[in-house]
Design a protein around this nucleic acid. Sequence first.
DNA 1: GGATGATCCGGAGGAACCTCCGTTTCCTCA
DNA 2: TGAGGAAACGGAGGTTCCTCCGGATCATCC
Lengths: 199, 199
Amino acid sequence: MPVTGRRGASRPMRADAQRNREHLLAAAVAAFSGDGGTEVTLESIAKDAGVGIGTLYRHFPSREALVDAAYRSELARLCDSVPGLLSSMPADKAMRTWMDHFIEYMTTKRGMSDALRKVIASGGNPFAESRARLLAAFAALAEAGAADGTIRPDLDPADLLASVSGVSLAVGGPAQREQAGRLLDLLMDGLRYGAARDG
Amino acid sequence: MPVTGRRGASRPMRADAQRNREHLLAAAVAAFSGDGGTEVTLESIAKDAGVGIGTLYRHFPSREALVDAAYRSELARLCDSVPGLLSSMPADKAMRTWMDHFIEYMTTKRGMSDALRKVIASGGNPFAESRARLLAAFAALAEAGAADGTIRPDLDPADLLASVSGVSLAVGGPAQREQAGRLLDLLMDGLRYGAARDG
DNA sequence: GGATGATCCGGAGGAACCTCCGTTTCCTCA
DNA sequence: TGAGGAAACGGAGGTTCCTCCGGATCATCC
């Protein structure tokens, strides 16, 4: 698989295309990191990257695709923290801690968060590029919990991801961090071993 | 309090304003009910109502305010069903059943759902007008559960509302109804009496 | 090196949202 | 009744998102 660019097993990306893609990504990271809260227009990113708006949209068909790509590495770091957590605490605590980090990440990176909200709002598949990675993280946590007996064994990683995204969507932003914590507590209470009852 | 229009204890709404408001509401209900899935522009609603776009925005400052007003009566019906549920089954089952209805409502009324998603995406207070009513419904269910011992007594209605909205936001639409059910099951497992554990 | 076709660029422009403010309509009070 | 002012109207226009397609650029093959 080529290092950059989404294409099947066809030809590698043309040189100018790859160059523009990198410029766009750099401009996007800079723009989204800038102070963290301001509105960022895609046109301004395209201008910063020295390309036309059409080029931006060809490489990143939607706003969230761009944001996703821009934050990919950071999100990778988040996912990579799972083994460390699992090695230092019981799986249920690791799960809860990691969820906190996830929410922290989502609510802090307003650009990311807004993009996720929008993609979910439009019914698309959120985290298009990163979804698999997140699912793997949740799966690891769930498996560890099933193994050490702290978490019920019948959980679907996709449901966990949906639940935690739901929490991050439901709470308005960094302001309601407290409420997010309570919602995660609630969720965890339902995830622990023995929580299931006959309806 | 006057029957229509949001105003404090000041003067009643001017006759033309009230007329226009009613026309807008009628047009909105018709538009949002039309087949259920098509995109509806606010400008078309204004045109149907025979008013300018500026008038629409004065009466309903945002899209969700209009949708909220349009669906108010239906949502009232949903909330009014709580006592009936509580009188015919234990509180935890009533809670779960009502949540199902809520999700059903949210995912079916695409206009409503999209509007909610958008208002949440923009960080506003969702259900601005209906929020109190929904909170009351959740409070009634939670209290009944605390009383009959099926639901833990330490729940905040606002958290319940946030959780269930989160579920409705997290699942893409009517398609993932099944997943929504699983998420609600998870949530319920956390709500039942005895679910809380020391972290 | 040069032709040639596939690939990519870029910005004009359509669609929708929302704001702003000059104009019009309505209510009040004498 | 009618004058005066408060309240509401309405649509032009700014902003952003995203699409579309003629023109420019690159890779390949001779």
